[in-house]
Design a protein around this nucleic acid. Sequence first.
DNA 1: ATGTCACATCTAATGTGA
Length: 260
Amino acid sequence: MSAPPLHVATWNVNGIRAREARVLDWLAAAQPDVLCLQETKVTDDKFPVEVFREAGYEIAWHGQPKYNGVAILSRAPLDDVEVSFGDAEDDEQARFIAATTMGVRVMCAYVPNGQAVDSPKFAYKLRWFDRLTRHLDTHVEVTGSALLCGDFNVAPADLDVHDPQAWRGHVLCTVEEREALARVCGDRLLDLVRRLHPGSPMYSWWDYRQLGFPKNRGLRIDHILVTPALGARAVDAGVDREARKGKQPSDHAPVWARFA
DNA sequence: ATGTCACATCTAATGTGA
């Protein structure tokens, strides 16, 4: 039994209610099978479920008041939905959701930003990475078909940063964060966009301030990490910069991948 | 010199997080 072709994307929308029309337009144009969302910023009772169902998608969602929030949309059924790591440190922050769809375990993460290296939020970010790694240790088989995507709030290397000199040592670019992300990957997950595009920056985020997007002052912090088995099926992957243009964009662009 | 945005709150200007 072979798995069907898969077109998957991940997008930090910075508020699903503010971005509802944009996401619907993008779904209609790009026609992905699966879309993972981060920063939905809405409680579960207020998530606009119906409009996405009418567009032909099943939805699993997990939110909280004001901040964070994640969701997975799929044209196929979503099975075995999980909304936490299920560990002893479980808290109220809605940053993880996973489901099985189209023969693939899809995990959607919104990694804490960390604010600044000397902030307690930075320690929380590193601890959260550690919990994610332990979760993957018990939930991901190297030989299986699994994918972890989302906003990791880490630019893995200098190539992923518009001005590495200016960003050196700052949150999103520290050695500690890069090492934590490397431990998440281990030998079970690979960074698909970088693997397929080894020489291009492929930024996925641009600051709203100081004309970040027009000046292309971006970072590559949104990633699609795949098991070797799924990676072997990869056809292409990229960033849809067009979706960052125009009126009232998110500060992130969708990152996508296609598998045969 | 935050050239910004979303969301919440004692619904208007401010705080928070990014």
